[in-house]
Design a protein around this nucleic acid. Sequence first.
DNA 1: CGGGTGCGTTGCAAAATGCAACCTATGCCT
DNA 2: AGGCATAGGTTGCATTTTGCAACGCACCCG
Lengths: 153, 153
Amino acid sequence: MSLADWDRDNCSVARALELIGDRHTVLVLREAFVGERRFDRIQRHTGVARNILSDRLNKLVAHGILARRPYQERPVRHEYVLTEKGLDLYPVLVSLMQWGTRHGGGEAPIVLQHKGCGALVEPRLACPDCGEAVGARDMRALPGPDAVLKQTA
Amino acid sequence: MSLADWDRDNCSVARALELIGDRHTVLVLREAFVGERRFDRIQRHTGVARNILSDRLNKLVAHGILARRPYQERPVRHEYVLTEKGLDLYPVLVSLMQWGTRHGGGEAPIVLQHKGCGALVEPRLACPDCGEAVGARDMRALPGPDAVLKQTA
DNA sequence: CGGGTGCGTTGCAAAATGCAACCTATGCCT
DNA sequence: AGGCATAGGTTGCATTTTGCAACGCACCCG
């Protein structure tokens, strides 16, 4: 398998994890996707310590995943909303949720509805070419255009 | 928004994060999906400290995400392979990878091929009902059958 | 015997985290 | 004005989690 020796330094998964690779950050994102925008409510719902939450919100804003915008003056109060970059994390959160539901005890506290067709569904990964649903076994990973093979391979 | 006050204790995302909610664990899973099975190779590729790696592998095995099986006797050597439960994490990893590629610098070290149709593709979340690709804006979250609304709502 | 490989475990220092208290600025009630 | 409440943090300190390097063990090869 040639893949075994591509250069991990250039890994998209690792890059993503640098920004959202800790439990607290993901919980914050969960709240963002559910529509919570205020510090206090997010804090209560996630149970994350206030100092940590403050830190994570700042980092998410710094990385352009959330945007801080004032919703009132005097005193200035901010709310945190998902940017496009943040909204693109939706598949990650949804996949995580579905996996947690399927393998973590079977409870489904939330269901999703497709606005387009109105159906209550579990979105799945599908091949955009043929439309078939795909899982780990249906796919093959190949070195991409930007892969760097190691000398020590 | 009724969703704002469902009980977070029963959250699938949180449950999933308890098992795979740290950077190292996810990196280990990346290796698993790429086909690495041995302690040493995983350690070199992830850069995770050996004691941490040992701990994470044990936890993943304990949770049924990886299975440890001997690939030789004398001395007994084990390899770590994904179980069904582990394979189900594929969408999470793929989503993470795609997001990292799109927003983390644009490099695509790995590309995916659908074995079924042969196309090089980026699998996307789709509505299993109508087949349309879906993003955050196309979906609505509703309290599910097992949602517990808070008294303090 | 000496060296190398595979797979960990142990000890200790450094970093991240949790908790509770504190602070600022404002509004609201009396 | 005084007292209380709300929103959004910051600060200090104890606890937990990591990282690093060294060590251990079991085996194989020459």
